[in-house]
Design a protein around this nucleic acid. Structure first.
Length: 136
RNA sequence: ACAGCAGGUCGUUCUAUCGCUCCUCGUUUUGCGGGGGGAGGAAAGUCCGGGCAACGCAGAGCACCGUACUGCCGAAAGCGCAGAUAUCCGUGAGGGUAUAGUACUGGAACAGAAAAUAAAAAGUUCGCUUGGGUGUUUAUCCUCCUUCGCUUAAGCCUUGGAGGGUGAUAAGGGUGAAAAGGCAGGGUAAGAGCCUACCGGUGUGGAUGGCGACAUCCAUAGCCGUUCAGCUUGCGGGUUGCAAGACCAAAUAUACCGGGAAACGGGGGUUGCUCGCCCUCACCUUGCUGUCUGAAGCUUUGGCGAAGGACAGCUUUAAUCCCGGAGGGUAGGUCGCUUAGAUAAAUGAUAGAAGUGUUCUUCGGAACAUACAGAACCUGGCUUACAGACCGGCUGCCAUA
RNA sequence: GGGCUAUUAACUCAGUGGUUUAGAGUGCUACCUUGACAGGGUAGAAGUCACAGGUUCGAAUCCAGUAUAGCCCA
């Protein structure tokens, strides 16, 4: 049974990893959300690490930025099994950053749909990467 | 009741499911379970303060910055409360703004005669005297017209006027943001605080009230100027800030460049400067010269190009040592840090119900909306944003009911 | 989070220590010069001095507020 938790262990926190992610990551985009990911092999129990960002340029007030980050985090928490199924320990390590690109705040339903679509796209790509690694 | 004035308080609530973060207990081990805590009046802007931390710390003077009516509160503040004076807005309840001192120095565009010393362009006046002359230093009046009288006439004399010259004047007019007390009488050729009375204001002395700023009254003096800045005086201020700072861990290479190592000298510390003092031979600041760079753009591809910026030399070389730059490495954790306490940063999401407001209504209800806004060391003020609700005061002219 | 700057013509910058005219270079427009360009010369246009307040007779300038852009820190 799955509790759909999202503790701090599943959060992307290392500044080093984040810098590497922005320099060498690959981009998927479903407006108004952009997803940046980079495979990052690790032996930790929670190999999938995710971060959320809303640019200050588009949203001047901290209230709006917090609201959008909370909605994105909630949408990811409820739908993350789309990416790696029930057992994420069998999954190779990956770093993900979700960035809100629009300049108007959207409702939770719209954000949830976007995140579902993004995670589906990502899950199609990742096994390919895994196979590529196995061939080497 | 309506319209308004100032002040104060509040600024959504409940249920279910799924989550986040901190503390604690138990089990135990990358966790799970129980219990408890988890945004604001402005958390915002960072405009003033205080705590705290690092640097620094014999002393004196100067500079610089801030501030400036009075009393009280306060750790302190450019804060608050209560008041004083002046001025503006409002019918009013009330609200806004300003406030040390003026000995000295400078300024007040344009316009205007003049902008605070002085002078006087137009205007006003031009008197006394038969005349000479005086007023007034030179000069001692000149020209024209009119009129009474005398005379043949020239001319003499008288009245009035115009222009010029000379002297007096700053009242009135006009200019301006601002024109040097107001009004009346006297005075004068015309005028003027030139003189006088009253009023206003200033200084000095006194009385009363008030803790005080100040207010009221009396006497007296001279006859009275605004504003801005410098300046002076009192008071306060070391600088930088929790990304301060302390400890631990991890990692790497010192390659290269520059400067210094004589000690009559140079430099540094002393919170910015000087003296004095101390220390040191690391460097800092300024100036000059030179080189490079330099946006938009132009170009015949050579260059041109404002402001600005950077570097070097003025101060020997090598070894060695020291210092600085540069390069390389690490960029993690704990404390600081909090009865909210995170560190890519929690305080939430979904569904339903209630409350409030607006609109529609078939009076059953329905739809929409529910402000400003999110802690990052703590804290006192200020400022700015804010749907609405409540509380008790006060005011009302044009027409309040 | 904290500490600081700036905003003036299409672009890059002056300016003012309060009033007279908001200027310079480049670019733009027109004309002259040339057989024609470039260059040169002459003339001209172009500004809510970021916004909305206050002080003042008068504000690009002084005062406080708002907005936008940018810089620094371990």
């Amino acid at each position: 049974m799955n509790r759909n938790t999202l503790g701090s262990n599943e959060r992307l926190k290392s500044e080093k990893s984040i810098t590497a992610l922005f320099e060498a990551g690959k981009i998927l985009s479903v407006f108004p959300i952009r997803l940046i990911y980079k495979p990052h092999p690790t032996s930790e129990k929670f190999p999938v690490k995710v971060g959320f960002a809303v640019p200050k340029k588009n949203f001047k007030h901290a209230v709006d930025r917090n609201l959008l980050k909370r909605r994105m985090r909630e949408a990811y928490r409820l739908n993350k099994t789309i990416l790696f199924g029930e057992d994420q320990n069998a999954f190779p390590g990956i770093d993900i950053m979700l960035i809100y690109q629009g300049n108007k705040p959207e409702e939770f339903v719209k954000i949830s749909e976007c995140i579902k679509e993004l995670l589906k796209k990502l899950s199609i790509r990742i096994p390919a990467a895994k196979d590529h690694a196995n061939r080497q």
